[in-house]
Design a protein around this nucleic acid. Structure first.
Lengths: 125, 125
DNA sequence: CGGGATCCGTTCCGATACTG
DNA sequence: CAGTATCGGAACGGATCCCG
């Protein structure tokens, strides 16, 4: 493709930074976990209770992914039984700020969204 | 559960506004579509070309969901063959601003994330 | 051009059982 | 307490064919 033919948004290819990050966050629990860890460190089972509906398997899997990306950190305390605490890294905190704005948007506009859904569903019959 | 026993974040139940919105956005294409439509209205096949790897099926499906939520609108022009343009609604534009910040975060921190991934993978062997 | 319908493989995810 | 292992259904997503 020549220079003057490339689309205005070639950033949308698979190697685009935004796309890579969006892909990581685009699962059922990542955004919720980051948001939950924003205020304080939380233990595994506490996190599990706080996030309504998450299974141990998915929680572990999602936490590992976030740890791999350097967004959260895992601290092990040699108690009996063992204690494991998850918390945001410095990097994770900067992302949490942005995600919080997304949550704020949600709270401010959820009513409008819900109404739109109802209207859409009626029109379709 | 009594009032003084409820977790600090009961907002994480399934009916929490943030969670509902996160769930909608947590798929492979929604965030990318909203971001692409931020600058201008785009036709179906153009959108398909811009978003590297999307199939017609998933594009249609995701666009319908976003339309149902009132985030984008669909305009049909009676040309031959027919022309269909997608664009953000007013509501969608307010969300697009927040998503843009997420994309900006990604661009600023993707290097750090990539390095963290490499280190994590090495440590695991 | 902008889809819908169908088929089909893959991945996601929850439930259950088990472990140090 | 903090996981791992396994299983099976559900949802995701691509390929192909068809249509106004």
């Amino acid at each position: 493709m020549s220079a003057d033919e490339q689309p205005p948004y070639d950033v949308y290819n698979r190697n685009c930074p935004a796309r890579m990050v969006f892909t990581r966050l685009a699962d059922k629990w990542s955004l919720l976990i980051i948001r939950r860890l924003k205020t304080d460190a939380v233990r595994f089972n506490q996190l599990r209770r706080d996030l309504d509906g998450v299974s141990a398997k998915m929680l572990t899997q999602t936490l590992r992914n976030l740890e791999r990306d350097g967004l959260i950190q895992r601290q092990i305390f040699a108690t009996v039984p063992v204690t494991v605490e998850y918390s945001l890294t410095g990097l994770g905190q900067t992302l949490a700020d942005t995600i919080d704005e997304l949550a704020l948007w949600a709270e401010n506009h959820i009513e409008t969204v819900l109404e739109s859904q109802q209207q859409f569903d009626q029109e379709q019959g």
